[in-house]
Every structure is written in C-alpha cells, then in structure tokens.
C-alpha cells in the first residue's frame, strides 16, 4: 500500500523534476563554465564564483537587497497585523474592507511600477507636487538616490502590506473568543493579551506571510527597473536586476554563479526564518 502511493505521486514528481530540477542543474552547469554566446563552453571550476564574490557590484547589490528586504519586512509585518486588528470582525463592512485592501494585490508588478513612476514624475506627478507645495522640496526620483530608494520602499509597502493584512485577518478571526474572555477575567492588559494570546495563535499565518514577503521582496525587479532603471547610479539595483543585466550581456557563466549564490541565500534565509518561527512559541508556558 505504501509503495502504491508512490505511483500516484510519481507524475507530480516528474513534473517537479522537469520544471525545477532540470533548470537548476543547467544553471549550476553554466556556473561552472566560461560560457559566452556563440562560443564553446570551457570548464572554469569555481572561477565564476570567485569572480562573483569579489565583485563589488554584486556585493553592493546583495547589501542593498538585504537592507531593502529587512526594512520592508520590518514595516509590513507589524503594520499588517495592526491594520488587521482594526478591521471589523462581522457585518457588511468586512467585505468592503477586504475588497478595498485586496485591490493593490491584483495589480501586476509592472503596472504598479508605472503608476508610481507617473505619480513621482518631477513637477507633474502628484507625489512630486505634494512635496513641492507642502514641503518646498524637489522630489526627483531619477536624480536623487534617497528619493528613488524611498519611492521603491513605499511602493512595496503599499503594494504588499494588504497581503499581510489579509493573512493576519484570516488568523485573527480563527481565534476563539474564549481565549480573550479568559484573558479579560485574568485581568490581562491589551499588550499582554496581544503578546500571549493573539501573537502565538497567529504564528502559522505569520510564518507564511514572512516567508512569502521575504521571498517576494528578495526578487524585486520590475518596479525599480521601471521607476528609475535601477538608478540613479546603482542605488536601486537589487540582485535580480544585477543578475539579469549580466545574463543580458551574455556572461552566462558569471550570471549562473550569481544566480546560484542568490538561490542559496534565499534558501538559507527561508530555512532560518522557518526554523525560528516554528520554534518561537514553544518555550512559552504561560
């Protein structure tokens, strides 16, 4: 019986192998060769990796990527929980709130990038105008690095916080009222109720939210590309865009090594997040 189960799983395993393993094997092979379009590949050993890890542009993109993902998660997760806690738990307004919150999630990355590009065009876009009239500040995304970085940051927060809200909301409505009643009888403060009732019960959905948001923020590409082409300078060039540039210039071996390093970092970070989050509440005895 146990062996027969494998037969049912076999088609899916085959599909996964074709969809995931074959490309990964190919990228690993490319990363171990000097490979330029139109010429025969030459075995390079670990030279491509040495080149990647000693390239200041790659290391810069990696640093910016970590900083971006860290800042985005630092804002999106608490903000998402906070908004979810303020949403009504029943009534017709629930549907309205959820639909309104879901709208940004339906917009494709490229369209979001374009929307924010239009909103931040110097002295034309609404954001630029607000900064100009209210703060007397010239908001120039294509020229000022701080403006460009902040635009991508707020764009991502605007685009993806609703996902955290929806996940947190699903977790919040699933918590039985008895827990809150017991906390109220014991005289628990709002903070302690949140810390020892709400947060542990939200752990499962927060793991999903954190992993999804981390992986997605780590793969940001279209938005910085559309808003400022990764500039000014390299200020908005993140790992995805950096690797894509190398692949576009047919440095396939280098791009392969950078991709594998990129994949490795994502896998390790997700593993660490997952391990920490799944073990987080286990020590709480109260």
């Amino acid at each position: 019986m146990k062996n027969r189960a494998w037969l049912f799983v076999a088609p899916v395993l085959l599909l996964v192998a074709l969809n995931a393993l074959v490309p990964i094997m190919a990228v690993i092979n490319y990363s171990l060769h000097y490979s330029f379009a139109g010429s025969a590949p030459e075995f390079a050993g670990l030279n491509n990796y040495i080149e990647v890890f000693t390239d200041p542009d790659f290391l810069g993109a990696l640093r910016r990527q970590f900083l971006f993902s860290f800042c985005v998660l630092l804002v999106q997760i608490p903000l998402g929980i906070l908004i979810a806690m303020q949403l009504p738990k029943s009534g017709k307004s629930v549907v309205v709130c959820l639909v309104l919150l879901g709208i940004p999630l339906l917009i494709p990355h490229t369209v979001v990038g374009l929307l924010w590009r239009i909103m931040t065009v110097y002295e034309v876009g609404i954001i630029s105008k607000i900064f100009s009239y209210v703060f007397d500040y010239s908001y120039r995304v294509t020229q000022n690095p701080v403006d460009a970085v902040l635009t991508i940051f707020f764009l991502d927060v605007w685009h993806w916080t609703p996902l955290v809200v929806l996940l947190s909301y699903a977790g919040l409505v699933a918590i039985p009222d008895q827990f809150y009643q017991a906390a109220a009888i014991d005289g628990a403060s709002a903070w302690k109720t949140f810390r020892y009732v709400t947060l542990p019960k939200l752990r499962a959905v927060l793991i999903i939210a954190l992993l999804l948001r981390f992986m997605d923020s780590f793969m940001i590409y279209a938005e910085p590309f559309i808003i400022s082409g990764g500039g000014p300078g390299n200020w908005n060039t993140y790992l995805n865009q950096y690797v894509a540039r190398k692949a576009e210039s047919y440095e396939l071996g280098y791009a392969g090594a950078a991709s594998i390093a990129y994949l490795y970092i994502v896998v390790v970070c997700c593993f660490i997040f997952y391990t920490i989050m799944t073990n987080l509440g286990k020590g709480i005895k109260r």
Binding site: M25, A26, I28, N29, Y30, L32, P41, F43
Partner: peptide
C-alpha cells in the same frame, strides 16, 4: 547539450 554538461558537473550530480 544546451545544459552544458561536463565530467566534473556530471560527477557532482
């Protein structure tokens, strides 16, 4: 062929 196999990478896999 497009996967650029070589002996060391084949041994690894």
């Amino acid at each position: 062929r497009w996967m650029q196999w070589s002996l060391p990478s084949a041994i690894f896999f």
